[in-house]
Every structure is written in C-alpha cells, then in structure tokens.
Amino acid sequence: MSGEAFLFTVFAAMTCFSAIAVVVSQTVVRMAFWLVISLGSTAALFFLANADFVGAAQLLIYVGGTLVLLVFGVMLTASGPYMKIGTSTGETVVAGLIGLLFLFVVFASVSGVNWRQPVTASADNVATGAVGNTLRPLGLSFLGARPESGVLPGEDAAGTGYLLPFEIVSVHLLVVLVGASYLARAKRRAVPVNQVV
C-alpha cells in the first residue's frame, strides 16, 4: 500500500462516511456540516488525482460559496431552532433499501465494465493534464487553445477549445445571479395559517 493509496483510502473513507452521514442526519445544519466534510474530502481526492485546480475550485466555489449559501437558506427558512422535518420510518427504510439496490446496480455496472488501459503518470503525459500541474493547460483551453493537441488559436478552435462554453457559462452565471437575486427579493409574506412543522 503506497502513500498515495493510503491517502486515497483515508479521504475516500471520509468522503463516503460523510456522505452517508448527510443522509442519516436529521437537522439541516448537521447535514451541511457533513456535506462540507464530504466535499472537502472530495477536493482532497481531486488533489490526489492531480487535478489541483479543480480541487481548489471545489473548495472555493462549492464549500466556500455554495454551502454557505445553503446554510443561509437553512437559517432564512428555519421556523425554529434545530428544526427537524422527519420522515416516516417506512419511507426511510424503503428509500434505504432502494438506495442499496441502486448502489449495487452501480457497483455491478462499474466493475463490470472493462475500462481502457489506465494511463500511468509519466513525463510524457504531464502536459496533457493527466498528471501534474494543470493550471496552464486548463487556462489555455478556456482561451480556445489546446497546446497539448498542437492546435493554436484560430486554427481549429471550434473543435478543441472551450472558449465558447466558457463564455456561455460566464453569461449563464451572470443571468442566474440576476435571476436568483430577483427571485429571492423580499416580497409579500403569506398570512401565517396552520403552520405545520
């Protein structure tokens, strides 16, 4: 068992355990806590997989941004401290069983597939982003150039680079932000009737 495998095992276990804890937790903030652990561990897995930029993005955007947003949501929508909205036991059991079944199905299919030969880390494939620092090639690909494929900008940008998707995602994000802030504006509040927890 190599060091990398050890670290992988640790983080994978943390990831899975926290994910299951998310499912099991009853209060939302605990769920959020476990989710943070899970996503953080996932980020560590990304680092292990030499995807350091993705891992950093995961940390910054997911954990630092999205989850804070979620916790905000929790607090803004909480009608009492440590609010719990329970699920019936039967439902939980059924969901759990089906989840297990699903997990089995996924396991079976994942292990049943004969994937292409794994690429091992070598000096040759560092530049492809398979191994090593990927920041520069990622940035270039977002600018429409794929140096590792030997394509310069303007030569065959449409087929290789990610300039257009990058722009689309940027605009999409802007639109979403505007839309979300519009949606979430404080508006009239419903008359509190039959408040049921």
């Binding site: 939302v28 979620l70 759990g96 989840g99 699903f102 997990l103």
Partner: peptide, 21 residues
C-alpha cells in the same frame, strides 16, 4: 467513491423533506 456519493445524494433527495436537504 463517485457511486457512493451519487447514491447518497439520490437517497438524500428521496428522504429529506426539507427543501434545502
């Protein structure tokens, strides 16, 4: 690991009555 995360997410969606959940 991805599969576990996926299934946990699905079960989470299926069991949590809280919208944030």
């Amino acid at each position: 690991v991805g599969a576990v995360l996926f299934v946990c997410g699905v079960v989470c969606m299926a069991t949590k009555r809280n919208g944030i959940g």
